[in-house]
């Protein structure tokens, strides 16, 4: 059983039902705010309550990302981060942690690295899943072959405008979980209160069509309260831009990493934690 399947299957009833049931997936850009921080940051986030980590692979032209992740991606690229550096970080993390790790990024660096090579190296160093948002299912069948060959989970996205039949096909093509984009927009987009109703309708449609995989929801979640509202009928939620915003604000003050940890703890358990 893959690490991702394992954590979804082993959610345990505990005092805090929300925290137990709703898995928290935290996105950070690998190499932001500097290459030396990625490994300790992942460990800090894990200790603070993150159930899985998405490591963003920086790209020069991140067309599905808002200003926050664009910025993080630029900083990482200024530090010269490459896919090999990211594989080294994953190996480092694996020395002390079994937290599920997902690589997320645009397909072009993967193509230049060599598709087969990329999936082989990812599996070797302990990556669990891959998200390539600009390679939707059906566009490049080699991706799915490679994922199966190397035993990695391939996570695809559904959006509010994805038709029912397409959702079923995405469920069929995905493993690990399905990533629900809560709003039409780039990463970091805010979702207004008036949209909660349409998000509810969307999630109901998702639950009807996506039956094989757990469902995580992301985009626009900035607080525990957001999460409670939006993730109610899902298996968990994904937070990225708001953590990076916090790091951008706090770094390089002495306590930036602790504050990042505190933020994740509050996301997971609420501000009383």
């Amino acid at each position: 059983m893959s690490r991702l399947k394992h954590i979804f299957a082993n959610r345990q009833e505990s005092g805090d039902r929300f925290a137990a049931e709703k898995l928290l997936n935290i996105f950070i850009t690998a190499g932001y705010p500097g290459p030396e921080y990625t490994v300790p940051l992942v460990l800090e986030l894990e200790a603070s309550g993150a159930d899985m980590i998405e490591l963003g692979m920086p790209f020069s032209d991140p067309l599905a990302d808002g200003p926050t992740i664009q910025h993080a991606s630029n900083v990482a690229l200024q530090h010269g981060i490459t896919l090999n550096d990211i594989f080294d970080m994953v190996s480092d993390i694996r020395r002390s942690s079994g937290i599920p790790l997902i690589l997320m990024g645009y397909i072009n660096p993967v193509l230049q690295f060599g598709m087969e090579n990329f999936f082989r190296k990812a599996a070797e160093c302990g990556v669990d899943g891959v998200i390539l948002p600009d390679a939707p299912p059906g566009e490049m069948s080699e991706i799915d072959h490679c994922c199966r060959r190397y035993g990695l989970d391939m996570i695809y996205l559904v959006a509010p405008n994805t038709p029912d039949e397409r959702m079923k096909a995405i469920d069929e093509a995905s493993s690990g979980f399905v990533y629900c984009v809560s709003v039409t927009g780039v990463t970091g987009s805010r979702e207004g209160d008036e949209l909660t109703k349409s998000v509810d309708r969307f999630i109901r449609r998702v639950k009807k069509n996506i039956t094989r995989n757990p469902v995580l929801i992301g985009f626009g979640i900035r607080s525990h309260e957001d999460a409670r509202r939006i993730a109610m009928h899902t298996d968990g939620f994904i937070v990225g831009s708001s953590l990076i915003d916090l790091i951008r604000e706090e770094f390089p003050s002495g306590h930036w990493m602790e504050k990042a940890g505190q933020f994740v703890r509050e996301l997971k358990y609420g501000s009383d934690a």
Binding site: F59, S60, D61, L63, L77, T82, L83, Y106, I107, N108, P109, V110, L111, Q112, F113, D134, A135
Partner: peptide
């Protein structure tokens, strides 16, 4: 070299790491 930018696969000016 061939790669993906702006929604299609075509020749691109890019680094060996696939950055545009």
């Amino acid at each position: 070299k061939p790669g993906v930018l702006h929604g299609s696969l075509s020749y691109l000016l890019q680094t060996e790491n696939g950055q545009i």
